[in-house]
Write a protein that binds this DNA or RNA. Sequence first.
RNA 1: GGCGUCGUGGCCAAGUGGUAAGGCAAGGGUCUGCAAAAUCCUGAUCACCGGUUCAAAUCCGGUCGACGCCUCCA
Length: 465
Amino acid sequence: MIRLYNTLTRKKEEFQTLEPNLVKLYVCGVTVYNDAHVGHAMSALVFDIVRRYLEYRGYTVNHVMNYTDVDDKIIRRASELGEEPLALSQRYIEDYDNDLKNLNILPATSNPQVSKTMPLIIEFIQGLIQKEAAYAAPNGDVYFSVSSDDDYGKLSNRKLDDMHAGARIEIGESKDHPMDFALWKAAKPGEISWDSPWGKGRPGWHIECSAMNLAELGEQIDIHGGGNDLIFPHHENEIAQTESYTGKQFSRYWIHNGMLQLGGEKMSKSLGNMVTIKDFLAQRDADVMRMLVLNGNYRAPLIFNEETQDAAEKSLERLKAALRPASSSSDGLSAEAASALTAQSGFTKESFVNAMDDDFNTPLALAALYELVKAINTARDNGANDGQLKIAQDTLRELTGVLGLQLKEKQGSSEADAEVEALIAERNEARKQKQWARSDELRDQLKNMGVTIEDSKDGTKWRWG
RNA sequence: GGCGUCGUGGCCAAGUGGUAAGGCAAGGGUCUGCAAAAUCCUGAUCACCGGUUCAAAUCCGGUCGACGCCUCCA
């Protein structure tokens, strides 16, 4: 039984899908006007892990992630660059797709875009006006009327009265209630716009997700996700719109990831404390980013610094090492020891599933994996052969795969490999002569080339990294 | 000010009533020519105060602190 923490109820709940074995999952994607940063990566990774795990547990996951390709910031940036807004956003969509691929994140089942959903958005707004949940203002804007919605504020646990103070009405707006928000914004001169019953304009931020949800997944979905900075106002408003429109509960479960922290504060484009995904991947392997996410609870803030990255990298090394082959000179494990290792595989799998079933408790799931790692290493030290390690290593490979870890050993070019082999042969010759100084010198040289050496009973082993 | 999350060993982090998982780092042992890898051993009473209980990191109240949202934001 899978349990997950539902922001709507602030409790862990048993997961039950609307339709058997099918999960309708909608995750808010990014606004595409700039390079994505590792905070975006965190969110994408969290939901990639959710999706992979649900699939592992036998569900078909209909995973929708949208692109906001029509927005104030896109328009501003495009005019700065002298580029068409949709051309700019299209460029960054491709760019982000590429980042996600490089992070080993599975592509969503579909990636709707605002610019391609216009008719439905307009229809949606018209429906809301008909139901008197929205109204057109004289200036061509259309607003959602929060007063029309009895349970407005239920997701973020806010009351309209409490929000009066902070709300602002900008000049030119004519809202009935300060918290009313735009469904449709009248176009300013020269801005990209679409025709509508209210004149030329473009959609507000929140309506797009309601419309794309409806288009892709229907009136009701199982899980809606995103960063916890979206709880208010974005997700709150989505609920208001969709439930006012359909009269049905929108999403059964709301999942929100915590914010990635750089130097004690949230990483964001506006704060300017960004590490882009490309910056990160130029320095570290994709697995490292994923490991950082796995190492903590997805709802908690993720501390991102050199120290946590180093630790993640080292623990990956430990997982990789467990997958390495047995010593070729080993003469096999006793039957009891071999069956104990196999038994451990079973225990680990069980612990892993129990941990993940409990709201994707990845730190606990990893702990289960390390238990198997230790068993494999001990078995190898005790003389296990490859056949005896296989089941345990296959299990480890399978479960790390569920988490989306690749655990690839670094590769070198064949010329470089040949050079390394030559140096190692030379070093082994020196070792045979007990010329330790020369031997160590060669080892240092290899180390500087990025090669790690391990001398063992069955010869010298080496690897990049 | 309002809403919410949280405060566990040097760092990251599990654990929601019965005397603290795991990873990284550190120190020591085994192995090794020396290393590396592996393995073994060593370390926290859980922000603070008060309460409930036979028993609390875990429940309740309070204090202090951190972070997020309340404006665009993953």
